Simulated assay, not measured.
Amino acid sequence: MMNAPTRRLLAGAASSVIAAALAVAVPAAAQATVIELTSGHVDVLDIDHVAGGPIELTVGDDTGSTRVERDPSTVVFVVPSAAYTAVPSSSAWSFLGSGGYAYVLPQTNTAGLLWAGWDTTGVASGALQFNRVTVKLTDVQGPGGFSVFTASGGTPTVLFDSGNGLPDSLNVNRNTHAHVNWGFDAAGTYVATFEVSGVRTSSGQTVSATEEFTFEVG
């Protein structure tokens, strides 16, 4: 018969082996490959919804030969020094930094930069009330202001701006594929949190999805 000290010794050894195995296995299972996107077409917010299902918020990556839908937690959007640009002196542009320059991913396709926007073509017709979703910027962590805007004829229309208080909301119709300007006041890492929601036509229930999106600037 095994005596008590021996049983305790073996039990302790077994516990150590199990703990060591878990310590190795859990991080390996949790790790995911992070993809840096540097240029080409990308839908930062790729929004899908079918009747009765959840809202799905992913990244639509068209930078390669085949479109890939990616988990936002595995993507870093790179905003290089080539995106550093002068800001017009008009007061209408005062939301974009204070030093006369900012980093901007433009709404037009520009070689060497990401051409970034959003896509709601995956939202089924009639699934949500008014055939639209509400996109809300709820939080930004970074070294400066973060903004999303369009520009026409030298005049900007600000859609989201972390510099004047959050959250900011925008209603976007289904079947929309749009490109916008993404502005950053300073170099560094930004994490922007977006929430997308809609109201089911069938039940009146609100469905939503929230994700964090990381930008490496400068």
Rank of each mutant, 00 (worst) to 15 (best):
F160W: 11
L159E: 08
M1I: 03
G53C: 10
A11F: 08
G163D: 10
V172S: 01
A4Q: 12
I55M: 09
V59P: 08
T157V: 06
G204P: 05
G99F: 09
I35D: 04
V26F: 05
T189P: 01
A102M: 00
E69D: 13
L105T: 11
G183V: 06
S16T: 13
V78R: 14
T74K: 02
V50K: 07
G40K: 11
E69F: 12
H41Y: 12
S81E: 15
A30I: 00
S98D: 14
T201G: 06
P54C: 02
A92L: 13
G112T: 07
L96I: 07
V172W: 00
Q107I: 01
S39P: 01
F146D: 15
G183H: 09
R67E: 11
V217T: 09
D161R: 10
T189V: 14
T33S: 13
Y103C: 09
T138A: 07
A11E: 04
Q141I: 04
D61G: 13
E195K: 13
A102P: 01
G126W: 12
R174L: 01
D61Q: 14
V135E: 02
S152L: 11
G218E: 08
E212Y: 00
A83N: 10
F130P: 00
A192F: 08
V68Y: 11
L45D: 03
R7V: 13
G99S: 15
L166E: 04
V26K: 04
G99Y: 10
A86G: 08
P167G: 09
L22Q: 09
T58A: 05
L166A: 05
G100L: 12
T6F: 03
G64H: 07
F215G: 04
G60C: 10
L57E: 03
S15T: 03
T85Q: 12
N181Q: 00
S73Y: 12
A11S: 08
N3A: 13
F130G: 06
G204E: 05
G142V: 14
T155Q: 13
T134G: 00
V50Q: 11
H179N: 05
S202K: 10
L114A: 06
D168V: 03
D119R: 03
N175V: 07
S169I: 05
G64M: 05
G52C: 11
N181T: 00
T58H: 01
G154W: 08
T189A: 12
V26A: 08
L57A: 08
A102V: 03
V196G: 05
F130M: 06
S197T: 14
S65P: 02
A14R: 00
S202Q: 15
V79D: 10
V172I: 13
L105F: 13
T176D: 09
V24A: 15
G183F: 06
A209F: 09
T74A: 12
P80G: 11
R7W: 10
A187I: 10
T74G: 06
A28W: 07
E212Q: 14
S39M: 03
P27M: 06
V191S: 12
A83D: 07
S203C: 06
V217F: 10
T206V: 07
T38S: 14
G183E: 12
N164M: 04
N3F: 05
A192L: 09
R8G: 00
G117T: 04
A111R: 02
D168R: 13
E69P: 00
E36T: 14
